[in-house]
C-alpha cells in the first residue's frame, strides 16, 4: 500500500515536471510570436504599383510604402554637389505572372518607358546615385509620397534585367 502511494506520488511529480516544461515552452513561443506580430505591424511596408499609389490618392500620403517602376532615362537629373537625385518612373505591373505573360521584365520595362499613357511619378532621392540608375532599369523604392505627388525615396534599389541572363546577343559572326 505504502509502495503504491509512493509510485503514484512519483508519477504526479513527473507529470508536474513535464507540465512546467510545456508551460515554459509555450510562454517562450508566445513571447516570440508576440514579438514577431508587433514588429511586423510597426515595420511593414505596402508594396504598391505606381498605378495603385495614384489611385489611392491622399489616403496614402505620408505612409511608408515600397514602389517599383521603370526609370525614364531622360528624366534623370543628378546634382552631385547636393547629392540630390531626381527622376521619373513609369508604372510596371508588380505581379510576376503578369510580367512573364508580357514577355519578361526587360520587355515590360521597355514598354512602360515608351508608353505615354502609363501612370508616371516623380521621385526625389537624397544620396549617392546608384550604379545601375539608367533608363529602363527597374527602381525599387522605399519611402513616402507627398501631397504634390512627389515620391521621397529613403532607399533605392536598382534592378537591371539585361545584366542577367535571358536575353540573346544580337551580333552574329559571319
Amino acid at each position: 500500500m505504502a509502495e503504491t502511494i509512493a509510485t503514484s506520488g512519483t508519477i504526479a511529480a513527473k507529470s508536474g515536471g513535464r507540465m512546467k516544461f510545456i508551460v515554459g515552452g509555450l510562454l517562450i513561443i508566445a513571447a516570440i510570436g508576440y514579438l514577431i506580430y508587433t514588429s511586423i505591424g510597426s515595420t511593414q511596408q505596402y508594396f504598391f504599383t505606381i498605378q495603385e499609389l495614384k489611385e489611392r490618392g491622399s489616403s496614402v500620403v505620408g505612409d511608408n510604402v515600397r514602389v517599383s517602376g521603370a526609370v525614364i532615362g531622360e528624366s534623370i537629373q543628378y546634382d552631385a554637389q547636393a547629392l540630390e537625385l531626381r527622376f521619373a518612373v513609369a508604372n510596371v505591373p508588380a505581379d510576376q505572372k503578369e510580367i512573364d505573360a508580357l514577355g519578361g521584365l526587360a520587355v515590360v520595362l521597355n514598354v512602360a518607358v515608351n508608353d505615354p499613357t502609363a501612370a508616371r511619378m516623380e521621385v526625389i532621392y537624397i544620396g549617392v546615385k546608384p550604379d545601375l540608375m539608367k533608363g529602363e532599369a527597374q527602381a525599387i523604392m522605399d519611402g513616402h509620397i507627398d501631397e504634390n505627388g512627389l515620391f521621397h525615396a529613403d532607399t533605392l534599389l536598382m534592378k537591371c534585367p539585361t545584366r542577367y541572363e535571358g536575353e540573346l546577343p544580337t551580333q552574329a559572326a559571319p
Binding site: S42, T43, Q44, Y46, R66
Partner: peptide, 26 residues
C-alpha cells in the same frame, strides 16, 4: 519576414514587405 510578401499577397491580395528594421527588432 522573407516570405511575408508572398503570404500577404495570397491572403489580402496586397504585397506587403518588411525590411531590416523588422529583423533587427525581432
Amino acid at each position: 519576414g522573407t516570405i511575408y510578401p508572398l503570404i500577404s499577397e495570397l491572403v489580402t491580395g496586397q504585397k506587403i514587405t518588411v525590411g531590416p528594421p523588422y529583423y533587427n527588432r525581432v
